[in-house]
Amino acid sequence: MNFDELLGNFPALTITGLEQGAIYALVALGYTLVYGVLRLINFAHSEVFMVGTFTALWTWEALGYDQNSPSPALGPLILALVAGLVVAAVASAATAVTVELVAYRPLRRRNAPPLAFLITAIGASFVLAESFGIGTERAPFGMPTLIPAETAFTVFGAAVTNIQLLILGVTLVMMIGLDQFVNRSRLGRGIRAVAQDADTAALMGVNKNRVILLVFVLGGLMAGVAALLWNVRYGYTKFNVGFLIGLKAFAAAVLGGIGNLRGALLGGLLLGVAENYAAGLFGGDWKDFTGFVLLIVLLMFRPTGLLGESLGRARA
């Protein structure tokens, strides 16, 4: 136990935690949306994120950046970021949709038991991870440094970098956008209706399958954005990069209340911060355990999460 480390670096740990938590939150949205509508833990979502990191990298490579190229000027930089974002988001969404169409929809048509969905989900996850693993020879890939980390300003002696600002900013924008979409738009109403009661919603004229597809698309888009932010911040990817992120994102979703969009944001940020405090307190080796321990403790004492579950009641 190293309290000096924790207290001495408290602001810095908090900021790093928020930044990592933002990425968890974006991935957690995918779990929460699918869970809210289908009551299914979509294990393949971690691989949806992984596909995003790779496609963004390939986009940058196609644009002529490699690990050694100098950071571009503002114009090309924005172009590269936007191109990477669009490609990653689209590829992630396409992956999520493919999994839904190939794996889950046939099961729904057969009214398979929940266990069958879970088993299929884990199968899909491993198929995706392994095909990338075999395709990339299980090697880690470095990214071009598009944005050199610079200190934007300091709070309580902790430096806040431009990358951290970017991550938090993008996450907030995406979150608010998604929240508004689900709560205000016609399609969002459909999502909430199916989440509340799928059969009744179908009787009221909501196309259930279309709503489910939409949920996978939205989750995939968010995972793609998270993947881009990951690339910018951490600068590497690997075929199994999604595993830990996925596990933590799921823990974050449960922490906030699975099925609850705002809960996903809260849970993600809290988890990120808690993880960094734990790393300060117990040493970096323990960082990855925090999310898991938190998940088990939470299941014992407050299984519905901090903000409560149910996407159907996500208005509050």
């Binding site: 099961l107 299929t120 199968g123 899909a124 198929v127 392994e130």
Partner: peptide
């Protein structure tokens, strides 16, 4: 290819 193949097998079997 073991994991890849058996992952696919799981999906197909479940359906």
């Amino acid at each position: 290819y073991r994991i890849l193949v058996f992952g696919l097998v799981i999906i197909v079997m479940m359906i």
